[in-house]
């Protein structure tokens, strides 16, 4: 499908590449996002008027300054950017995230076992074996939606959200997986806890992942988890 440009109020342009989520579309979105970042980096006089880009599943939102440009002018610029961007197999960053599947953390592990008919070990193995990719951020700061959950452990969302799910929970719903960064309600199934720091107080890099990053999980035991969280606390005190 040809990219579609849709106006969003006075300051946004939504560029849609597909009606459905698929790998090729997402690759195009990542390449498009990178190409815009490059154009912005050389736009010293701020003539493009682009403020930021939000890459997502089937489209990207381009936020602009309406005092500098408008929807039509920006569409022309973005069409040129698109023409010069072919989907590249750009280098993807690989991230490793540690997960402890201990029963004190996997609040919903039993439910996943019951739904899938797999053993606890099989669920963990299927989760660790997956190749994950960060598709977009949403819902709350740092909530990176990763695609790639193995079909054998895909479970639907709960009927109602559960409140006060702590930060660091590793949870799944359908084909997606994410690691919570805040205490928030969720309807996803929590299967483990990660000591890996994904939230930074750095404007240049607020969170561990960029959209498009590849993620693999590494299983750790409770002792390693406790060790890792202890180390994290002591570095935070420095």
């Amino acid at each position: 499908m040809e990219p579609q440009f849709t106006a969003v109020a006075d300051c946004g342009l939504l560029v849609t590449f597909s009606d459905t989520i698929n790998d090729s579309t997402h690759k195009t979105i990542i390449s498009f996002d990178k190409a815009i970042a490059k154009a912005m980096a050389t736009d010293n006089d701020q003539q493009l008027g682009i403020i930021e880009v939000v890459p997502a599943l089937i489209n990207a939102m381009v936020v602009f300054d309406p005092l500098v440009t408008d929807h039509l002018q920006l569409e022309k610029v973005l069409r040129t950017v698109l023409k010069n961007t072919r989907q590249q197999n750009t280098q993807t960053t690989k991230r490793v995230v540690q997960v402890c599947y201990h029963e004190s953390f996997g609040f919903d592990m039993q439910a996943v076992v019951d739904t899938t008919g797999l053993s606890r070990e099989a669920v963990i193995n299927a989760h660790v074996a997956g190749d994950y990719k960060v598709l977009m951020y949403g819902f709350a700061p740092g909530y990176a939606y990763m695609g790639g959950v193995d079909s054998s452990i895909q479970v639907p969302r709960k009927l109602a959200a559960v409140r006060d799910i702590p930060a660091g929970c590793v949870m799944i719903a359908g084909a997606q997986c994410l690691i919570t960064t805040l205490k928030m309600p969720t309807g996803w199934s929590i299967i483990g806890r990660s000591p890996t720091q994904v939230l930074f107080n750095d404007p240049q890099r607020p969170f561990l992942f960029d959209v498009g990053d590849q993620v693999t999980f590494e299983q750790i035991d409770l002792q390693t988890y406790e060790q890792a969280t202890k180390t994290k606390v002591s570095t935070a005190d420095d």
């Binding site: 403020i51 930021e52 880009v53 939000v54 890459p55 939102m61 936020v63 951020y137 949403g138 819902f139 709350a140 700061p141 740092g142 909530y143 990176a144 404007p203 607020p206 969170f207 959209v211």
Partner: peptide, 10 residues
């Protein structure tokens, strides 16, 4: 406001 972090869910 902290403009510029929408891509990170902020």
């Amino acid at each position: 406001g902290r403009t510029g972090h929408l891509r990170y869910g902020v």
